[in-house]
């Protein structure tokens, strides 16, 4: 099992990678399975940090920074606001049940096994990219080849934020 994962004992990078992977997967399981919604929200923080560490491992420096800024700084704070606005912190049992864990686990396990089968048994002809700073290339790609998707996503973001502000604002008091 350990040899199948390609762990060479005595390679410190392997241990750091394993630690990041364990942190990510363990806290993801807490997010999906914890009874307390506040624990879920804070475990999501650990998951995002672990994923950012994996990005740094995979030579995606700009993506790692953007993960921290966008997910931890933006989305997680939004989710925490949502949790705090809809629950009392001490409420553990407030509608936090699982409905059909067996069906859910079966479907999730099937999806995982299918993806794992494909990723293990496909013959990938891997060429490893040498580590190089990616920020400049991403910027050039966004103003060059990928200009239209970039503009489309910016318009989508603007529309979504206006819609969110409209949806969440308080209704005016009727006179």
């Amino acid at each position: 099992m350990i040899a199948a994962l390609g762990i060479r004992l005595g390679d410190p990078a392997a241990y750091v990678f394993l630690a990041f992977a364990a942190m990510t997967c363990g806290s993801a399981l807490i997010v999906a399975a914890s009874r307390n919604i506040v624990y879920s929200a804070y475990a999501l923080l650990l998951t995002f940090f672990g994923v950012a560490g994996l990005y740094a491992f995979l030579d995606a420096d700009f993506i790692a920074a953007a993960q921290l800024l966008v997910y931890v700084g933006g989305i997680l704070v939004l989710i925490l606001f949502g949790v705090m606005l809809t629950h009392k912190i001490r409420d553990i049992n407030l509608s936090n049940e699982t409905t059909n864990p067996i069906i859910g686990a079966a479907i999730a396990g099937f999806i995982f096994l299918a993806l794992a089968y494909v990723s293990i048994y496909t013959k990938w002809d891997v060429v490893e990219r040498t580590a190089s700073p990616t920020t400049g290339e991403i910027g050039k790609a966004f103003v060059g080849k990928y200009l239209l998707p970039f503009e489309a996503s910016s318009v989508l973001l603007l529309g979504a934020l206006i819609g969110a502000a409209y949806l969440a604002r308080r209704e005016k008091e009727k006179p």
């Binding site: 992977a21 997010v31 919604i37 998951t47 994996l54 409905t99 059909n100 864990p101 999730a108």
Partner: peptide, 23 residues
């Protein structure tokens, strides 16, 4: 890829099995 599959499957489990819309 195994790690990403595990994250994705965990998310699928959470979407199907949990009743709290924030989760």
């Amino acid at each position: 890829l195994l790690l990403s599959a595990l994250l994705f499957a965990t998310g699928v489990f959470g979407v199907i099995a949990r009743r709290n819309v924030l989760i």
